[in-house]
């Protein structure tokens, strides 16, 4: 385990977010306090409606909290967004059908004003990182779902933000592709030493990937348990059969159940 003594990358204190709907207020987040250190791989897990995606969106400045404070890299989320502090991967690949794979990866770079050579250099590097070399000239709709999602990860990596926010990135993919991509994400994390926040509703996925698992429950959306994983950073796929793995998975399941009974 790394020491997380130095200043946390993401720090939330008593964070609340209430949506007003026609059926009255909905407490999407209530009193969320959380600290994420540099290089952590944090998974947010919980049933739908528990606020895990909302929390990620608050970190990304896509939603504004109604109470509490949050800092990203020591700044407000708004300032962090403008400083291009993070890459965001959505559940669907969300690639632009009118751009090639390379064009999609270079799009954020184009918006951020990188030179043409730099854009091409970086695109080549991240496409190699996600093993999409040779597909630069293809259009997204000519690729499989798994490849599209890899391209969207490449796009999030392209501008070298040190935080990667992933919102159920593999939720729409089948189990086999998902396992492979999980392995690749771990490799990527080891190589790039980024801080990753990962939303999922799969227990094995959360345990396999994370150094820290945040268990959440709905109505109101809140954190019920934070589990620091004792698993080593090097994780072959068969670690999922080890007793430690099963222990953590069990604890996550307990946390989810407790949250469910409360609600």
């Amino acid at each position: 385990m790394r020491d997380t003594v130095d200043a946390p990358v993401i720090q939330a204190q008593d964070l609340c977010l209430t949506f007003t709907t026609n059926d009255g207020p909905v407490h999407a987040l209530k009193d969320v306090t959380l600290s994420i250190g540099k290089g952590d791989f944090v998974s947010f897990i919980g049933p739908s409606g528990c606020g895990k995606t909302t929390l990620l969106r608050v970190i990304a400045d896509l939603e504004q909290p109604t109470a509490g404070t949050i800092t990203v890299n020591g700044m407000t989320p708004d300032a962090a967004r403008k400083a291009r502090a993070y890459g965001y991967v959505f559940q669907a690949a969300g690639l632009y059908p009118w751009r090639t794979i390379e064009g999609n990866v270079t799009l954020p770079l184009e918006i951020m004003g990188y030179s043409r050579e730099e854009r091409q250099r970086r695109a080549a590097r991240v496409l190699e990182l996600v093993e999409l070399k040779g597909f630069e000239r293809k259009f997204p709709w000519q690729l499989s779902g798994g490849m599209q999602q890899r391209a969207s990860i490449a796009r999030a990596l392209a501008f070298d933000a040190d935080i990667l926010l992933m919102d159920e990135p593999f939720g729409a993919l089948d189990e086999i592709v998902r396992d492979r991509l999980n392995e690749e994400v771990l490799k990527l994390w080891a190589r790039t030493e980024k801080t990753i926040c990962f939303v999922t509703h799969s227990i094995p996925e959360a345990v396999y990937l994370s150094t820290k698992i945040v268990v959440m429950s709905p109505r109101p959306g809140r954190i019920t348990d934070i589990i620091d994983s004792p698993l080593p950073r090097e994780r072959p796929l068969d670690i999922r059969d080890s007793p430690e793995f099963i222990d953590i998975a069990h604890r996550v399941r307990e946390g989810l159940r407790a949250g469910h009974i409360d609600a």
Partner: peptide
């Protein structure tokens, strides 16, 4: 989602 993406890049 794509508009959110644009926002995360502060376009």
């Amino acid at each position: 989602m794509q508009r959110d993406l644009m926002r995360t890049w502060s376009a």
